[in-house]
Amino acid sequence: MLNILHLDDALVAIDKPPGLLVHRTQLDAHEEEAALQKLRDQLGRPVWPVHRLDKGTSGVLLFALDADTASAVGQSFERGEPSKRYLALVRGWPAEDTGAIDHPLARDPEQPSTGQPMLEALTHWRCLARAEWSLATDARFPTSRFALMELRPETGRRHQIRRHLKHMAHPIVGDATHGKGPLNRAVAAHLGVQRLWLHALELRIRHPGNGEALVMSAPPGPEWSGLPGIQTELQSITRSTSPEA
C-alpha cells in the first residue's frame, strides 16, 4: 500500500518509495509496477500525474483526480509556481554554506547536449551538515567526505538537481548516470543500502479549487537515519515534516 500524504476531492499526494516508476515506460520495460497504477488500484479510481520524480527519487508525488485539475496543476508547474524542497546526500564538502546554481541545461539529458536548445535552470542550495566517514573510495585518501544538502529548484528541468550537483562537482551519492561508480558501489557496500540519495521533502502549491496554500511533506525514510555523522540534522528534518508537526 502506498503511503497517502494528502487526499481531497481533487488531489492526492503519496510518499513515493525509491525505485518505483511514476508510470510505466518503454525506457524501463522490464518494470511491471508503477506509482500511477498502484495508486489507481488502491483508490479504485483513475488518477493523473501532474509532475514527475525520477525512479530512484523518493518523497512527495502529486496526482490529480480528474482531467481538469490535472491540466490546471500541470500548467502551474510549467509556470514554475509550486515550491519544491529536496534533500540529497552528495560527495564532498561544499566550500560555502549556501549558494545557487544558475546553469542552463539541455532539454533532453539522454542525448548529447551539442545542438540541443539550452534552457534556463536555477537551483538554490544549502549545506545542512558535513560528515567524514572511515571509508576509502579513493586510494589517495583513507576517508571520504559527504554533505547533506537542501535543494530548492526554481525551474523544473529534467534531472535538474542531479545535473546541477554534478556541475557543482558534488554529485548525488547513488546517481548511476551523473555520479561516480566506484564511490556509489563503496557507499552501498558500507551502508548495506543501494539507492539514489535524493528525497522530495516538501511540495507547496495553490489548491486549484479554492486557491488556498497546500503544503505536503514526507520525512526521509528510515535508511537516512543510518547515515553516519548527520543524525542530528536528519532528526530535526524528520520532526519538522512528520504529520503531527
Rank of each mutant, 00 (worst) to 15 (best):
S58W: 05
R162L: 09
S236V: 13
G80T: 11
A70C: 10
P228E: 09
L20M: 15
Y86M: 01
T69E: 08
H190S: 13
L43Y: 08
Q26K: 13
D66H: 14
G181E: 15
S240C: 06
N184I: 08
I230V: 15
L148P: 01
K16Q: 07
H190I: 03
D175W: 09
N210E: 09
Y86V: 00
A72Q: 14
R126K: 14
A213P: 04
L119W: 06
R126H: 13
L36G: 02
I14P: 01
D41Y: 10
R206V: 03
R52P: 04
L62K: 03
R162M: 04
T177K: 15
D54P: 08
G221M: 04
V187T: 09
G115Q: 07
P18C: 11
P46L: 11
A13F: 06
R204H: 05
A34P: 03
G192H: 12
R52Y: 12
L87A: 01
N210S: 13
T114S: 09
A29T: 03
S134W: 01
G221A: 14
L198A: 09
D108N: 15
V60T: 05
A95M: 03
M118A: 08
S71M: 11
L53V: 08
Q42W: 12
T137V: 14
A189G: 13
A136W: 00
V50C: 04
G229Q: 10
I205G: 02
V193R: 11
L21C: 08
D175R: 06
R206E: 10
P17A: 13
L203R: 04
L89F: 04
F146R: 00
H124K: 09
E78Q: 15
L5T: 04
G209S: 14
H190K: 14
G211Y: 12
A147I: 04
D9E: 15
G99D: 00
W125L: 02
P49H: 14
H51M: 03
A72E: 08
D8T: 11
E244R: 14
F146Y: 14
A29C: 07
L122T: 06
L7M: 11
H23S: 11
R24W: 05
R239W: 12
P104Q: 07
Q235C: 08
A67N: 04
K38C: 11
I161W: 02
P18Y: 13
A121T: 06
Q75A: 14
E33T: 11
W197P: 02
T69R: 07
H103F: 13
